[in-house]
Amino acid sequence: MNEQDELPAVKQQSKLTTTRIHIKLKKTLKTELEQKASENFMSLSQLLLQSARTSTITIKRTDAPKSSKELLVMTAAYNKFGSQLNMLAKHCNTFKENSNTMKILSCLIDIERGITELKAELLGEL
């Protein structure tokens, strides 16, 4: 009985404390990494672990909008253009035969100009 009591303790000590990480790679990149690992007599896991431990990662941060007010103005303008496009689409679907094509094209051109002006203003190209 003494041996049976010790057996579960041995099993508990030998439990692995590892975990898995799943990543998505293109097949060509996976093949390239596997080739690099085999050239260095390593498994793919060993190569990735060594690379992660010895490399320095630089994170590039992008600047947030200058103020939340600018973001709100931009969002409101895009919503306005979207609303105009929805009204035109509804009109075209409702009055297919009687639609004034020239007026619709004129409205679409106005919306396109508005989006272009907004883009130029946001990117500082005005």
Rank of each mutant, 00 (worst) to 15 (best):
M1G: 13
M1V: 11
M1Q: 11
E3W: 05
Q4N: 07
E6N: 10
P8S: 15
A9E: 06
V10D: 01
K11I: 06
Q13D: 07
Q13H: 02
K15V: 13
K15D: 12
L16F: 00
L16Q: 02
T17E: 08
T18I: 08
R20A: 07
H22A: 11
H22R: 08
I23K: 14
I23N: 04
I23T: 10
K27V: 15
L29E: 10
L29G: 05
L29A: 07
K30L: 07
L33G: 04
E34Q: 14
Q35G: 04
Q35L: 10
K36A: 14
K36I: 15
K36S: 12
K36F: 10
A37E: 06
A37P: 06
A37W: 09
E39P: 02
E39V: 05
N40Q: 09
F41L: 08
M42G: 00
M42P: 04
L44D: 00
S45I: 00
L48W: 03
L48R: 01
L49F: 13
L49K: 11
L49C: 11
Q50D: 01
S51V: 06
S51Y: 03
S51C: 00
S51M: 08
R53C: 10
T54F: 09
T54C: 08
T54M: 12
T54N: 13
S55N: 04
S55Q: 14
T56L: 14
I57V: 14
K60I: 08
R61K: 15
R61I: 14
R61F: 15
T62G: 03
D63P: 00
A64Q: 05
P65H: 13
K66Q: 06
S68F: 13
K69T: 12
K69D: 15
K69V: 15
E70G: 13
L71F: 14
L72V: 15
L72G: 08
L72C: 15
V73E: 09
V73D: 08
V73S: 11
M74P: 00
T75K: 05
A77P: 00
Y78F: 06
N79S: 11
K80I: 01
F81G: 09
F81R: 12
G82N: 09
G82S: 04
Q84L: 07
Q84W: 14
Q84A: 11
L85F: 15
M87F: 05
L88I: 08
K90N: 06
K90F: 02
C92S: 04
N93P: 02
T94W: 00
K96S: 03
E97W: 02
N98C: 06
N98Q: 10
S99H: 00
N100P: 13
M102D: 11
I104D: 08
I104E: 08
L105I: 10
S106D: 07
S106H: 12
C107R: 09
C107H: 12
D110L: 06
D110P: 03
D110S: 09
E112I: 04
R113N: 03
G114N: 01
T116Y: 08
T116S: 04
T116Q: 09
E117Y: 15
K119P: 08
K119I: 13
K119D: 10
L123Y: 07
G124E: 08
E125A: 09
E125I: 13
L126D: 03
